[in-house]
Amino acid sequence: MTDAAVAFNPLAGRPPLLNVADLEAWYGESHVLHGVAFDVRPGEVVTLLGRNGAGKTTTLRAIMGIIQKRRGSVRFRDLETIKAPTRVIARSGIALCPEERAIFSSLSVQENLMLPPTIAPGGLSLDRIFALFPNLKERLGTPGTKLSGGEQQMLAIARILRTGAKFLLLDEPTEGLAPVIVQQIGNAIAALKREGFTVLLVEQNFRFASSVADRHFVVEQGKVIDVIPNEQIGTSSAKLQAYLGV
């Protein structure tokens, strides 16, 4: 854990749900993460902010074990997952909604939605899911990739809500979407938080991030360099602009 992270969470009363420390990861020979450290507490929505190529997506992929060459520590609940294979990590209750959405084109919307196996009791019912994303209900028979970008994004989130996984990794869920869809996704994230989900969100859209998150970790060159509680976002805007180059 970086000093910054500790300094900004003096009253982190509850033990973290996810604790990442000294996380390093490689794509082949290239060293991408250089000791990422942060934590996520149960029921929180936390973002990883940073420029393109800072290592945000890589951090999610390393947590999920999709990047196999990794070192350091990723503790989820009481489980050290740094050596675990992806399917074990998934079975422990972490679900990923990837940046590219990864909707299966050879599966219908319904099949895409029902694809991820249930890993624990307590997932959302289909009724609840359709209440969050009404668009999906009418399109169940269509091939997954015939949906619009926004609907594909909703489907990519919807399908991991059924499984009973309570910790969601959402990678840029608003990228390239119309404002009205962005708002719908924001509402859904807020609703999920009320349902007791914990969310780790990767975002470039800072305004969107500040509308849904409790804390923001700033990632730069494969490290977490700062943490900003959402209530300090106003006073930190100059700092953030410098970090994000916006």
């Binding site: 294979p85 399917r87 998934a90 990837p98 050879s106 694809l115 890993i119 499984t163």
Partner: peptide, 22 residues
Amino acid sequence: NLGAYLRAANENPTMLGAFGVD
């Protein structure tokens, strides 16, 4: 459902694995 797994595994095995499928 089994067939859906097979089609999904054909398309994107990494993602299917990230759902916890062996």
